[in-house]
Amino acid sequence: MALCQIHVPFRSSSRQKIARFSNTKLLRINCGYSSFEVRDVSYQPPGTQLKLLNSVSFSLPDKSLGLIFGQSGSGKTTLLQLLAGINKPTSGSIYTQKFWNDGNPSQPPEPLVPERVGIVFQFPERYFVADSVLDEVTFGWPRQKDSYQLRENLALGLQRAINWVGLSGLPLDKNPHSLSGGYKRRLALAIQLVQIPDLLILDEPLAGLDWKARADVVKLLMNLKKELTVLVVSHDLREFTSLVDRSWRMEMGGYLREELLPF
């Protein structure tokens, strides 16, 4: 993105314009961007000699959608677990970086903290534990009396998340297990969107859905990437062709390389 420069001249009569041109104020707006960065990340489970990931590196700019695909067992889910903070890399770093328009960093990198990552696992409805939509969404909220302000902020975030995923007309006392497959995925997304994450991760978000629900989820992600940075792991490549900004293939042995979708 280019450096934005806006000239703001003094108000003056036509006779004064030339004389005051040299005193014109220049408002400089630095138009930069931020990016999610993975650099040389490897993972070897404790007590083993087998590396599940080998020097994985990639970048995903803010408010874009990235897709990782590849064979089962190649390391895709392992990578997601590292990004979400479930496991820690054996080596390498995971961080966010702000850049100037010329591609140079504008400040030191900031580690990606697990609390700022939202993750929706494959078949997330299997992990629903409550008997109502409201109880499911608020299951992990703080219960202490002195957390009123936090709970108020979460409630505002809940309303925003429900609107984002298209559940605004859904009764909050409805049993989440009675929802259709597509609505269960929407609910799982809403839970992760209550506190806007720096990175939203989706593991096989179309798995087990019929054609209409799949189309609805893809449309939903098209809108979400306007607000969030989204990383998807999926075998369903054709549906994502129209909304993917960057894509990578994970090869057996845990090697990642950038590759366009084959459609």
Rank of each mutant, 00 (worst) to 15 (best):
L53M: 09
L83P: 06
K88T: 13
Q71W: 00
P109H: 09
P114Q: 11
F58Y: 12
P45D: 01
A84T: 08
T90N: 07
F58L: 14
P89L: 12
N54R: 14
F36Y: 05
P46Y: 01
E110T: 12
Q97I: 05
K98L: 12
K76H: 10
S55H: 15
S59K: 15
G118N: 07
K88A: 15
S57T: 13
S93G: 08
Q71C: 02
K98E: 15
Q122N: 14
R116Q: 14
F69S: 12
Q97V: 07
G75C: 08
S91V: 09
Y43G: 03
P108R: 04
V41H: 04
S42K: 11
Q97K: 06
N87I: 03
N101I: 00
P105F: 08
T96I: 14
Q107P: 00
E115P: 00
V120N: 12
L82Q: 03
E37T: 03
P46D: 05
G118D: 06
F36Q: 02
P108W: 02
S57G: 06
S74H: 04
E110R: 12
S59A: 14
L112W: 03
F121G: 05
L53H: 03
V41I: 08
S42G: 10
P111R: 09
P45G: 01
F69E: 02
N54A: 08
R116C: 11
Q44Y: 01
Q81W: 07
S74P: 00
T96Q: 14
L80E: 08
P61A: 10
A84H: 13
N87E: 13
L79N: 04
S72P: 00
P108M: 03
V117Y: 07
N87V: 01
P61I: 02
L50M: 09
P61L: 08
P109C: 04
L65S: 01
V117S: 07
G92K: 14
P61K: 10
V120A: 11
Y43K: 08
G66P: 08
